[in-house]
Design a protein around this nucleic acid. Structure first.
Lengths: 350, 350
DNA sequence: TTGCTAATTTAAAACGTTATAAATCTTTGA
DNA sequence: TCAAAGATTTATAACGTTTTAAATTAGCAA
């Protein structure tokens, strides 16, 4: 047997380095420096002379070097990943998609990737979060549909794992969140209906367990009480109710003598269902009744200009969620990571 | 200075291993085996005795061991990640969300994660794909809105990078895809309208550059010619047209003497826009005209039971996309990775 | 027993990066 | 001129895994 001539470490000086992607060693070889020096130069460590730093950066750019995520992750323990818990509920109108779009935007120039958390692995969202924490599958977590005493928030606070949620909680410990000002949404929506001369207003609430249900209720009740107007809050349906059930419910209420003539719909699907139900009962929008709806896509306004809308920009929310989570990850003591986004009111003049 | 008593390698025999996650070494220590043996036992290498394999598996399960993704990725070069290119267009109706949902389902029991590709990094989708390939950010790629001579497909075929797309191409080289049988959709939709006695049918086509535009056109024309019926194919609008523009277009056509009385809408938004436009013109659905629409959520049927629908199950498509891409990754020569999903026709009896 | 093969386990190296500590080289002050 | 201090670069080890090659043990025939 002839002795195998395996190259010793450092003996192989060719730049392509086994024809693969460029690594730090590739740059080191070209620049005639040690790998360590290159690493520090790229991270702009002050101990490395300015000239060397610039030269290394230039070479890196020229050969299209990109650090190996796996190696960085292994060495530093940081995944450079943030995970979003896809909620199993509202598949319907691109809620998650818009938010993810915004997050991706916030992550654009960073080294972070967005992974869709495999919430299937576990039955509940809390278990999914647990799994991610335990196995360090991400550096931070984003989720939606927050509850007042949200189990996910409790877990994440306990473990100190970076997260941010869309929506607020009622925990005494403050934590990062981005929320939409649903109080103002409901308040202004009700006032608009009242200003239009409506006599009895109804609001379709989100499921009770979600925090923003309380906010909408509060805003709604404040406006209603200020004006001393009649109101109705249906128990049988909510924003998650299938459109046909909601439509039939509205249809059945429309004929009652005390039927409402103003509707607040914090979702586009619910607005369409209300229009459909009222239409079945022969009522005409903007004549017999009015709707103020929350709009997250442009769909509703486009189809029904007669519906007054208050816009919620979910992509912007996603962008804030991403940006603020990164802040939280990089500085665990960061303050003021709480953001309440103002409603964008689109009522036509007059 | 007292000499620091840094523990030598292997001296630290405690199971918790620096209080962190369990690693192969944790198991090795417990089992009294070498790390190598544990590794092979867990991958069920036949050289390891059955008894050892079972024992190692048991311990791993008990202490909740999960392999470190970064280390595996670094060593093997496999990322255990599949990426989906989020298309910047249709944010509106949870198209991507449904597909992602299906993909996540397919990835459930595997070690794969789904990352949303940062298509922002580059201007075009082709550049985004290039970036992912070049930097090995994933083991496989999924994308939608496929074109006949799709630049992404060309690139991926050339480089041999595993991928699967939603939609077909016209390249002579076969490649994996999942598609919906849009020919049959359009054919059956047209036949339904004809069977209902409609005299002139219109189809809202997808943008011309997308492959499935041709399929729909073909199915439509086949049915139309078989029946010898009048038809109309608008040039000014397509499926990506904003709802209000489409609505106004339909409205303006409705009054013409040669206005169509049957519509094929390969999307729910377009169906709503058509209904809205016709309604503005005083036309009543199911009386003055009929619609057959493609339905991907339950929204449309719920709101408008009078619309005949043909269902496209995007979550199922996502599941197939994920499953087949994994096959492709694990077996580059896999055949038959092409799937045409049949339309699910929901026409009520009679 | 001895020697030989097969079965099973193991040590060492490597993936590409960063942190620590040590080694050079330069400058400065006496 | 020499030593000390400062500036800059470098060797080494480590993160947790898998691969390669080698070592150990067991089984068995002679």
């Amino acid at each position: 047997m002839t002795e195998p001539s395996r190259p010793q470490r450092g003996e192989n000086l060719d730049i392509t380095h086994k024809r693969g992607k460029p690594t730090l060693r590739t740059i080191a070889t070209i620049a005639g420096l040690a790998v360590t020096t290159v690493s520090r130069a790229l991270s702009d460590a002050p101990q490395i002379s300015l000239e060397t730093r610039q030269r290394v950066h230039r070479i890196a750019r020229e050969i299209g070097y990109l650090p190996d995520r796996a190696a960085q992750r292994l060495k530093t323990g940081r995944t450079n990943v943030i995970a979003i818990l896809l909620d199993s509920h509202e598949e319907v109108v691109g809620f998650s998609t818009s938010i993810m779009y915004g997050i991706a935007k916030a992550l654009k120039e960073t080294s972070y990737h967005l992974v869709v958390a495999p919430n299937f692995l576990s039955t509940t969202d809390v278990e999914a979060a647990e799994y991610i924490i335990r196995n360090h599958l991400a550096d931070g977590l984003i989720f939606t549909r927050t509850e007042p005493l949200d189990g996910r928030v409790r877990l994440l606070l306990e473990t100190g794992f970076p997260f941010i949620c869309h929506g607020r909680t009622e925990f005494s410990t403050p934590h990062p969140y981005v929320d939409y000002d649903n109080f103002t949404f409901a308040y202004e929506a009700a006032r608009r209906l009242i200003a239009k001369g409506r006599k009895k207003v109804m609001v379709i609430l989100p499921p009770k367990r979600l925090t923003f249900c309380q906010h909408i209720l509060h805003g709604f009740m404040t406006a209603v009480r200020e004006a001393g107007i009649a109101y109705e809050i249906p128990e049988a349906v909510d924003l998650d109710t299938p459109a046909d059930v909601l439509r039939d419910f509205i249809r059945s209420r429309a004929d009652a003598p005390d039927a409402p003539d103003g509707f607040i719909c914090p979702g586009e699907v619910s607005a369409l269902a209300v229009i459909s139900g009222m239409s079945d009962a022969g009522r005409i929008l903007a004549v017999d009744y009015d709707i103020v709806a929350k709009e997250t896509s442009r769909l509703l306004t486009q189809l029904q200009p007669k519906v007054d809308t208050i816009h919620e920009d979910l992509t912007a929310a996603g962008e804030d969620l991403g940006r603020m989570l990164l802040q939280r990850i990089n500085n665990p003591d960061a303050e003021e990571l709480q953001l309440l986004l103002p409603p964008q009111i689109n009522f036509p003049v007059g």
